[in-house]
Design a protein around this nucleic acid. Sequence first.
DNA 1: CGAGTTACTTCAATGATAGAAGTAACTCGA
DNA 2: TCGAGTTACTTCTATCATTGAAGTAACTCG
Lengths: 167, 167
Amino acid sequence: MKQKSFAGMRCSIAGALNLIGDRWALLLIRDLSLGLRRYDDLRESIGIPNATLTERLKLLVARNIVERRQYQDRPLRFEYRLTPRGRDLWKVSTALREWGDRWNATGFDAPAVEVVDRLTGRKLVLALVDPKTGSAIPRDRIQYRPGPGADETVRKLLGELNLGVGK
Amino acid sequence: MKQKSFAGMRCSIAGALNLIGDRWALLLIRDLSLGLRRYDDLRESIGIPNATLTERLKLLVARNIVERRQYQDRPLRFEYRLTPRGRDLWKVSTALREWGDRWNATGFDAPAVEVVDRLTGRKLVLALVDPKTGSAIPRDRIQYRPGPGADETVRKLLGELNLGVGK
DNA sequence: CGAGTTACTTCAATGATAGAAGTAACTCGA
DNA sequence: TCGAGTTACTTCTATCATTGAAGTAACTCG
């Protein structure tokens, strides 16, 4: 796959998407985080062509999202695992799964995977949390503001966004 | 863009990725949620070629993620906005931004956008929350379990995942 | 010895994308 | 009324990526 740098490369979303690659890569990350390790298992689970799989794995390894490690000598064999950086993408896949479930992206009503609290058994959802207190912040208290790396364009957009809060 | 159904279409992640489309689409969603509405603004902000932009917008409209609405008569002009379904993708872009910031995906140290609590000014992060209590659940209490729509493969993978929790 | 497993590589055909140029329907100022 | 500008596209071609099928290398196992 050709790698391009997007316009607006100060944007972390564009940066993240650039590093990850594409849908195949995200599906790989999903399967790796579910415990699949081997080339053929990944290929069958995802239904990705060989050439594409090889290429994506190479890219992800180059970007330190996946590591390729030897697991036996004779015959020489390798497996793939997420690095800490790759494991840290779990919120992205969780957000995608949540959205997919909520808006019925598969055409099936019943979700295949649920995320629950081991103690109470209750389903969990992603929310914005103050890490100091550990509690979720309601939507009307959430504010987007320019960070130290913001340029004029972002500053202006965010300014207008905050003016339009009432709407 | 050709639309394919992935193997494992019971998977909400694959489903969500299918509906969204690709990186361009996610960047469009980012810009639309920041308040951009007009074709030319989107094109310039993202640096997407005309043909691709037109095609992606059409796809997103067809999928009820974006709506195209007329905003004047003479000359006839249209703008693009997120539908509720599209707006609900905010957790996906937030997760991508968080990851991009944490792992320095742009090459710049300083994030361009921060999400804060309007009351305290403190930065917020995504976390898994029990919606009943509104508080974040620590990682060791989080459990993935097969939902009602799980097939044998998922069931097996999740079983092994939970066995390997100690590692 | 022959079949099977794992992890790929190679190839030809098809499909998508970029970048540049062009178009339609207006408005606005001189 | 003329010409430049704005907005939202469409069209084109060369290049690039992807698919799906087939092949390969280095083993193991019966």
